[in-house]
Structures are given as structure tokens and as C-alpha cells.
């Protein structure tokens, strides 16, 4: 177990070096989220009306955080495919190291990076007027829940990457999966204005649960009242969905890794 931890730690270190070597990626995980906050907060915020006192700037932050977590699917999947196709996975698998450490190292590193992104976004959000109203603990719990989502998305991404084994296919599929998950949710708009059937779909979308849960924890307005069970009880729903997702994807990704062979 300690071996697995130290192996994973060495592999996290490897990815941290990557970031230092690739300023463009550091820029990507820093500037992009800033742009998102500014665009949504100011541009869309000027036109959007949501219920509650905080206005759209408060409403949108949890939504953008969740959107960034969702993007971890692609980040991890593309990274895993890269390692697979340049032979590194074979190299690691032929070493007498714990086989889980490679995937754990990858998903933990991606979680660390997305935590950094989150911190930058929170700072910019604060500057444009976003506030968390429920004290330090609940605010941290809100970020914790979002990072748990990022971690779950990483494992989902690892599974997708190891299954498809092809960078183009991964990008295409990730786009198809992420679009409806992000936009058929309450991340960017309150669900009140949606037609009934669409509202039901959006309410049951797990992304909505995570977003509502973090709004509750941050003390930001949900913008919608009532609705289906997940909309009424977002925190337990979000926790259950994320824990189940991790419990399913971790062993599946592990199994895919054992058999992984590059596609050439």
C-alpha cells in the first residue's frame, strides 16, 4: 500500500514537471477559466435575470466550476491515450510496480491541476463580486464536492481513453458526452423557463445535482424551487452519484489498464 502511494506520488511528480515544461498548458488551465468567469459573469450576466439577490454573477459560478470539472473527462482521457500510444503504459506495466499506481497518479495529478484552476477562478470570481455566504467550512465543502466530481470525471475519462485508445475518437466522444451534460443542466440557466419534459431531464442530470449542491453550500441562490427529487435534495444526490460513479469506473478502468494495448 505504501509502495503504491509512493509510486503514485512519483507519477504525480512526473505530470507536474509536464506542466512546468508546457507553458501553454499552464496558460490553458489558468487563463481559460478566467476568461470563462469574465465572459459569463459580465457579458451574459448583463443580460440574464435570475431570482435572488446575488444576481447572475453569484448564480453562474457553481455552474462554471462544474463545467471545468466536466472537462476533466477529456484531460485525463487524452493523457492516458498519449501514454498508451507512445509505449509508456507498456513500460510501466512491465515494471514490478503496483499496477494501480499509474492510473491513480494520473487522476490525482489531474485533480491537483483542476484544483489550481478552481482557485484561480474563485479569485477572479471574488473580484467581479461573487461571494460565498455560508462560512469557511461549507465553502470548503462546496469545493470538495466539486473536486470529487473532477476526480470522478478523471476516472471516467481514464476508462474512455483506455477503451477507445485513440485521441481523435476520445475528443469526439468527449464532446458528445459533455455538451448535453453541461448544457442540459442548471449550470448556466435556471430550469424554470424550460418546457416540462426538458426540465425533468435537466433535473435528473447529475451535473444539476452537483451544481445545486455547491450553490447550497456556497450560499448562492439555486434560482429554482421545487421539482424532482434530485432538485429537492441536491447534496445527498450529488454525493451518491459521484461515489457510485467512482466505485464503478475505478475497477473498470483498472481492468482496461491491465489489458491495455496500444492501437497502431
Amino acid at each position: 500500500m505504501t509502495e503504491a502511494l509512493s509510486d503514485s506520488f512519483a507519477l504525480v511528480g512526473r505530470q507536474m514537471r509536464h506542466i512546468r515544461r508546457m507553458p501553454e498548458q499552464l496558460l490553458g488551465i489558468t487563463v481559460m477559466p478566467v476568461a470563462l468567469v469574465v465572459v459569463f459573469g459580465y457579458l451574459f450576466g448583463s443580460a440574464m435575470q435570475v431570482p435572488g439577490e446575488g444576481g447572475y454573477k453569484e448564480y453562474i459560478m457553481a455552474g462554471i466550476f462544474a463545467q471545468v470539472m466536466l472537462a476533466n473527462i477529456t484531460t485525463t482521457a487524452v493523457g492516458v491515450v498519449g501514454d498508451l500510444n507512445n509505449g509508456l503504459v507498456d513500460r510501466f506495466r512491465a515494471l514490478p510496480i503496483s499496477r494501480s499506481s499509474v492510473l491513480v497518479g494520473r487522476t490525482v495529478a489531474d485533480a491537483v491541476l483542476v484544483a489550481w484552476t478552481c482557485a484561480v477562478m474563485a479569485g477572479v470570481g471574488y473580484l467581479i463580486g461573487w461571494r460565498a455566504h455560508n462560512g469557511v467550512l461549507r465553502t470548503l465543502a462546496g469545493f470538495g464536492l466539486l473536486l470529487l466530481m473532477g476526480f470522478a470525471m478523471s476516472w471516467l475519462g481514464a476508462l474512455i481513453g483506455l477503451t477507445l485508445r485513440n485521441a481523435e475518437a476520445v475528443s469526439a466522444l468527449a464532446g458528445v458526452v459533455m455538451m448535453p451534460l453541461a448544457f442540459l443542466s442548471n449550470a448556466f440557466v435556471p430550469l424554470d423557463g424550460l418546457p416540462g419534459w426538458l426540465r425533468t431531464i435537466a433535473e435528473w442530470n447529475p451535473v444539476s445535482a452537483v451544481v445545486s449542491a455547491s450553490r447550497d453550500l456556497f450560499g448562492n441562490e439555486r434560482g429554482t424551487s421545487g421539482g424532482a427529487f434530485p432538485a429537492e435534495h441536491p447534496i445527498p444526490t450529488a454525493l451518491v452519484v459521484l461515489v457510485v460513479l467512482i466505485a464503478v469506473t475505478v475497477p473498470l478502468a483498472g481492468r482496461a489498464y491491465q489489458k491495455a494495448a496500444a492501437q497502431r
Binding site: 509505449g87 509508456l88 513500460r91
Partner: peptide, 24 residues
């Protein structure tokens, strides 16, 4: 293997050190 399995973004030294650390 058939394709040189090195981490392109690490230096040569870092590549070998990483393997060494993984081998304890």
C-alpha cells in the same frame, strides 16, 4: 518495445530517475 517508450517532456535524466524511483 517497438516504439521508444520515453516520456518526451521529461529530460533524459528525469526519465531514468523516474524509473529508478518506481523501482524503489
Amino acid at each position: 518495445g517497438q516504439y521508444a517508450a520515453v516520456d518526451e517532456r521529461l529530460t533524459g535524466r528525469e526519465n531514468l530517475q523516474l524509473i529508478g524511483v518506481l523501482l524503489h
